[in-house]
Design a protein around this nucleic acid. Sequence first.
DNA 1: AGGCTGTACTG
DNA 2: CAGTAC
DNA 3: GCCT
DNA 4: CAATG
DNA 5: CATTG
Length: 609
Amino acid sequence: MPPLHPPPSDLSLVSQGDKQNTDHQDTTDAFCLPPAPSAPSQPTKVMASRQRVTSDVSSLVKTITQQNPQQPNNDGRSFAEPSSQCSFHHATGDPAIVQSHEVIAIISSDEEVEPLVKDVSAKNHPNLSSHSHPAGPSAPTAATSSTVSTTPLSSNQPVPAPRPFPRQVTWDQVHARYENSTLQAKHNLYLNYIGQSPSKRRKKKQTPSYETTDTESSDEEENDEAPAIVGSARFTVPSASTLTSQISGNVEAHSVSLAFPTDTTSKTYYACQYPAPLICPNQDLVDICLKLEHARDLTGDSMNALAYRKSIAALKNYPVKISKPQQAWALKGIGKKTGRIIADFLRDGRVQDIEMLNANPAYTILERFYSVHGVGNHTAREWLSKDYKTLEDVVAHEKLSADQELGIKYYDDFLKRIPRSEVELLVEEFRAGLQDVQPDCEYTVCGSYRRGKPDSGDVDIVVTHDNAKVTQTLLTKIVDHFKDQGHIVGVLSMSSGPDNSHVTANSVLRNRNCQALCVWLSKHPDAAKIHRRMDIIVAPKMDYPMAVLGWTGSKYFERSIRLYSKTVLGIKMTSHGLFRAGKKLNVESERHAFKILQLNYLEPELRNC
DNA sequence: AGGCTGTACTG
DNA sequence: CAGTAC
DNA sequence: GCCT
DNA sequence: CAATG
DNA sequence: CATTG
């Protein structure tokens, strides 16, 4: 099972057949294309294969995950050894930010949760726990299939329970959080206090007094009141001067005091309601989930990836360091799987899932393909299934789309992060050129730069101008200008301009803002001679606030706030505006948008969920 | 069981 | 329309 | 994968 | 969550 | 009140 032998070759497009047998073979299968369960044949048609792909993958993933559990923990453990240095904490970089972000916790939760754990590990169902943890060294080999026999104590267990949980922390331990209701109640209290209400509890009634007070009637316009406020915490944000784009001009908070909306009856919570700092106290756990999320993206299981993203959001919203598994388990968005992974990590500092990924050559290859601009998980898996190992292989045999060509041409450059200082330098070049093209423009550097990241993968600039006529043609002018200047050396994709509209009369409504995804080369002497991704967006003045909000991210923040907007308020949110019943709402500013949405304003630096 | 953001460009 | 990107 |  | 046991 | 879909 370790890696090697099974190069993906055998399970190319055609080889579907019996996944059942093969699958248990190794996880690399998960990354390969389709063991099409049903229709084998025709590798020929691209299209045909495509359709099959998605469905197959999901099923594949499913089967794999199912069988995974069946494997006893031991073996996974053993082969994980090679990559002992389990590299979870990749460089978070930028100490400045790390240290500056500090959380003033409201409660010291540790003690309260404490005792519960000990009891659990010590006594509960010794058989399971014992066999799981220390087993690693002793039970290396592949006895896996015969799980039952190996562990005498648990022998009774397997029969009725079809799938024992594979990882180190046993299901019994998971259940432990439900024992000792006293402690649990305290913990819930704590969660309540900071706004993470512990789902369960009463479902109906429970009309807290505060709910009735202000709310409801005044829901429209002003009334910045979000739901009732029960608790609050303070996040100290990285120093304003450094993180705030001078250009965009706004923002200055050093320390933001945030009130958390806390309605214990509300069924869902949305990440957009809570501050999510760049670096959080549980960054190590976040990094683990990030890796898993990425892995799910590669296999095309986007909803799965989303779940991990939700876990990340939950962790980021949690203001104190997690030292006990039940702290994590109690969070919404962290369930069985993620909870166990976290428990594993807390217990012995490593996670089997991660180490399996790291040891999996297919994963590495897939990641290489996937990181080419224009190559998504679908194409990446297809290439992998064709046994390509390197980009050279791909170039030799595949015909690429225009943006993929560029993506490969600048592959190395695009992978390099852009430090803030260089972003500012590029933006200055842009500003100067923009001035020539069109004076009196306004613009904001969005993206991760605006959210305060120490470095960015690209530069996002949203431009506007008071005159709608101007914005209509501005993008083309800008791009042409910088092409002439030699700054833009390639265009990955670009809005077709204001023309189109060959369709019906509604053309007026359409085609609001335009985008150009470009390759930018700085001519500044100080700049590294690295090609950078620069996204230029032009929006009419009316849409500007929403465009800025929409292009600032993070990606999950956008998903969250749009979902919230839709399901809670019935408002459709896009980067062109807010729409209620098809009518566009007037939005004056970013803050105004938050207000309309009845959300506490979050500085861009706190939208890093 | 059903849902998970919403839009735009490319081929 | 599927795939990719933001 | 997780929540409702 | 709603529906079911 | 727990399990199920």
